[in-house]
Each structure stands twice: as C-alpha cells, then as structure tokens.
Amino acid sequence: MTAAPADPAPSDEPPVVLRLADCSKTYPGSPPVHALRSADLTVRAGDYLTVVGPSGSGKSTLLNLLGLLDRPTAGTFTLAGVDVAGLPERERTALRGRRIGFVFQEFHLLPYRTARENVALAQLYVTGRAADRDRAATDALERVGLGHRLHALPTTLSGGERQRVAIARALVNEPDLLLCDEPTGNLDSATATTVMDLLGRLNAAGVTLVVITHDPAVAARARRRVTILDGRILAPDEHPGATAAGHPALGKAGAP
C-alpha cells in the first residue's frame, strides 16, 4: 500500500501581496521606449520596501503598474492572488479601490471639504451609508493623530497635517498595500521626519508599504530596498538590522 504524500511544510513567510514576474512596459513610438524591462518583484504582507533610482529610470512606470493605473506590455502581475494584467478596466478599478491606498507628493485634497469629508470620499464605492463613511473617516484620522482636526479645511492645516489627512484617506478602506510616491517631497526636513515616523509606526502595526523615493534618508528607513536603473529592477538590498518601522529610534518618537 502506497503511503499518501505528506502535506508540504507550512511556510513561515507572510502571504504575498503582489508579484511581478518578467513584466515589461514598452511605449509605442519611433523608436519605442522600453520603460520597464523583465521586472521581477515580490512584496509580502507587512513588508516595508523602498524603490530608488535616478530620474527617467522607470520609477513612475513601476508605480503606475503597481497601482493598476497602467498595464504591462508583457509578463504577469498578481495582486492579492488575482492576475490583474488582463482584467477588464471596471474590475481593475474596483480592485484598486479595495486593495491599494495611494499617498502622493501632492496631497490632492479638496480645499472646500473638511479633513473628515476628504477621507470619507474614499469610501464612496465601499458603502452607501454616510454615517458609516463618517465613522470610518474619523477612525482613520484618529489613527494618524488628527482626531482633533476632523472639521478643519485643508487651507487651515500645515503641510504635515495635510499629508496625514492624505495618509488617512489612503488607509480608510484598509488596503492590502500602501503605495507612496515621494511622500515627503513637498515637506521640510522636520515635517518629513514626522511623516516618515508615522509611516514607520503604521508598518510596525502591520501595514504593507512600498515607498518610491529619490531621498536616501527616506530609503534608509525601509527593511528592503530595490534600485531601478534603465528600466531594470536590480537585486534587492536587504537591511536585516532595521526595525519594523525602519528606524532604530522610531519607538522613542512622539505622536506626530
């Protein structure tokens, strides 16, 4: 009698949030522009990854692919176990709204809406109940230390506060991935440190972060860093000594 095959040993690694496999992006033209070349990248739950590279290296193209704002020309891309490259646009939009939170260099806040209203707008496609949206927005703003600024207009907030509202908006739908594009680009150095401290604490609490940056100080906070050059993702640079928040002194930082 043949023994039944043993079950595979359980993996200690966290589940995969996204995976690029041999992904390329070519823009048509004469000559065509090969913006991303045979890219391989895996991000797991709880990861803190930074992507660095010079201007024109392909960072923006990679951001657009990871955020489901564009499609690869070749290769496969899975997000939360779903092969998204060939999905219809409506399904991609719904998946993006549920699974990905965006934080940009520009805050993209509506100036005539309060902080809570700006955050609640991200829930329009999640729930039709205004009370539920307000409750979720309030919770998200409290999470980033702005529970006392619910009714403030963006014009009355500092740059750091506006970026924290943007982070709350990105978090309100509890996404699998927080995708940050130069999140400190419009901030002075002290405010940038405060925002990065906040992102570090969110990561320590389990939020998966991918941060695209040109700033070495921002990149150094991550546990893992990849460099993109001429459209190619180079081998990852591991930082085993970094804390979950990406900075050894982060636990001493006060609330932003």
Rank of each mutant, 00 (worst) to 15 (best):
A21F: 10
S24H: 11
S24Y: 11
Y27D: 02
P28M: 04
P31Y: 10
V33T: 12
H34M: 07
A35D: 01
L36N: 03
T42F: 00
A45W: 04
G46Q: 05
Y48F: 15
T50H: 03
T50I: 04
T50F: 03
V52Y: 02
V52F: 01
P54W: 00
G56H: 08
G56Q: 08
S57D: 02
S57H: 00
S60Y: 01
L62C: 07
L69Y: 01
L69S: 03
A74N: 12
A74Y: 04
A74V: 05
G75D: 12
T76A: 14
L79R: 11
G81W: 03
D83H: 14
G86M: 02
G86D: 15
E91S: 13
E91R: 15
R92F: 06
T93H: 02
A94I: 08
L95P: 08
L95E: 13
R96Y: 12
G97Y: 02
F104P: 06
Q105W: 07
E106K: 00
H108L: 06
H108N: 15
L110N: 06
T114M: 05
R116D: 00
E117F: 06
A120M: 05
A122M: 08
A122W: 03
L124T: 13
Y125D: 09
T127M: 08
R129T: 11
D134C: 05
R135T: 13
R135W: 02
A137M: 09
T138C: 06
